[in-house]
Design a protein around this nucleic acid. Structure first.
Lengths: 337, 337
DNA sequence: GTGAAAGCGCTAACAG
DNA sequence: CTGTTAGCGCTTTCAC
């Protein structure tokens, strides 16, 4: 691999001139520049960006901590990140954490060892926990999608409470009174906010909240199926099931089919995220659409602004949602519309 | 950020000793090591890995070119890569290429600018095309999943021909004679191999090949739906549809439902990949399971072996498939089993 | 407009 | 066992 020295030797100039000819062409005479460029071409010189990064102290790498890439919502988020990062000259170091804290911490360490300039965390956990550091200065981190509550770092999130409120209201409007919710993991702020929106809508409609209609899930198809089975085995089963993501809703749909129940005639089902499969389930799923790619691009933008010192105090960006009505929700049994 | 010099000063030793105490502890006296470690702790010293990488000439980064992360099969492949790379001390630089050649070339350049040691390409395109280089020496690249034909680099693939043959045979065994295939993009070696397996099975069963039963798709849900509509509009529609991935199969299922056709009583449908949704479609999908994570881990292993010079001539690893029978395929109409 | 030289943080000879 | 020194490839003063 040719170095700048070989180019300099061939062009009969100093290495400084080669560097300048490449970085600030206007600061070099036309003639010299031409000679340098010719030498670059002849030697096939490619600057060693590792050396550049080392010297500049900027890696232009961003670590991305994603709970699981095998989730279509996150996949879209990553897609948005990648696009935005590439446009801005940054690369993404991807870590599929499987919600493993050690793994997250291991990757967070890359920021402290100068391998990355910052980090985006898509989960409600501070990966810098335990890595003793200057607690005074802001961490080069952006939290998105599923966010930590009390951390002073830029955040990109949905108004989950409002979204859950909207969906619950939609179901109430169809005459449903026993509305179950298949939740995400306990202690997740995301779940907490959505449950809050659900309860608020219920309460405003004068419907009593029933703890037994709150079923735990883990965002997988299987967990949705299992939760649906348990809900329908209740003495007073729900007439509508609101799931915290589309995967669980699709799992629930299959369970209902197995139980011989029709959707939406017997039970309505709603999801969250609007993944591609939501429009292709049987029946197509009513869900909350999230601007997934925008989550990605916004968090990358914020992180780069933060790194490059263009950010004042940690902003909190709220992205819009959209309730998509499809065929999986309908009037409650016996309800006249 | 503390440097090795500050640690050396505090411990009252040379920087070389600090480096040794950290890298080869046995080559330093217990007493000195203890002093160094104490100084490391006190200063909060973290080695600048950018400097290390620069000096060693090894980035320990691998570029991954994936056509789209928003595809559950690829997501699983990436997951396998990540795990394997992390275990071996490498990081993944992810690029969601959207099959954009310029994007792929732009990332491939990272290998030549010392930002990455090698590259894994999941598509049948050589990203080093056009980047003039020492054509004699092997490229630090591994090709997996959808692979290039005549390139002398390590390859990980499925025996696509055999898999398609197996599925076609399965359908033939159920009495189907008009078996359609929803393909991937034209000119894809992957599609070519699968079509070959399909044709061979047909031919061995004495069934004439009908060009009109070969419908083009692009691996998306929508393309499967569209292709199914076209196939069923044929003068002699198929009684079975074999799709090149599960997404297209699920799209086809929806179209058949809309046409009022029952699966599998009227039409059988088969997929490929065995993504999580395949078991949750209505009806659950018969498909070919691929060891996706293994594709990822194997390609990372091969690439690292190649980079570290442990690989002889470019191996070709064939991974096994498994035909999963579910409810979407059944006896051809009028066929006695 | 160009060159000489210093230095980013680290490791690896080579001495001692 | 430890210190001195050189240098990885590049950019950036500071002179000229």
């Amino acid at each position: 691999m040719a170095t700048i020295h070989e180019v300099a030797a061939l062009a009969e100039v100093s290495v400084a001139t080669v560097s300048r000819a490449l970085q600030q062409p206007e600061r070099v005479s036309d003639k010299t520049r031409a000679r340098v460029l010719a030498a670059v071409k002849q030697t096939g010189y490619k600057p060693n960006l590792m050396a550049v990064k080392f010297r500049s102290g900027k890696s232009r790498n961003l670590v991305v901590l994603v709970p699981t890439v095998a989730n279509l919502f996150f996949a879209r988020v990553i897609s948005g990140m990648q696009q935005s990062a590439h446009d801005k000259g940054y690369s993404l170091l991807l870590c599929n954490t499987m919600a493993n804290e050690e793994m997250e911490q291991s990757y967070a360490r890359m920021v402290h060892t100068s391998q990355a300039d910052g980090l985006i965390q898509l989960r409600a956990f501070n990966p810098f926990t335990g890595l003793e550091l200057a607690a005074d200065q802001p961490l080069p981190m952006v939290n998105a999608c599923e966010v930590l509550d009390r951390i002073r770092c830029p955040t990109v999130l949905l108004d989950n409470k409002a979204a859950a409120y909207a969906m619950t209201e939609h179901l109430l409007g169809l005459g449903h009174r026993r509305i179950a919710m298949i939740k995400g993991p306990p202690r997740s702020p995301l779940t907490r906010d959505r449950v809050a929106g659900y309860k608020e809508a219920l309460s405003e409609a004068g419907v009593d909240f029933d703890e037994s209609l709150l079923s735990p899930g883990n965002f997988s198809l299987a967990s949705g199926q299992k939760a649906a089975a348990e809900l329908m085995a209740l003495p007073q089963p729900p007439t509508a099931i609101f799931c915290e993501n589309d995967e669980m809703a699709i799992g629930a749909l299959q369970q209902l089919k197995q139980l011989g129940l029709r959707v939406p005639q017997d039970v309505s089902v709603a999801g969250f995220d609007d993944i591609a499969f939501a429009a292709y389930s049987e029946p197509p799923l009513t869900t909350i659409a999230q601007p997934a790619e925008e989550f990605g691009s916004t968090s990358v933008s914020l992180l780069i602004d933060l790194i490059e010192g263009r950010l004042g105090k940690a902003p909190k960006v709220i992205l819009p949602f959209d309730l998509i009505e499809r065929a999986s929700t309908g009037p409650a049994p016996g309800h006249l519309t």
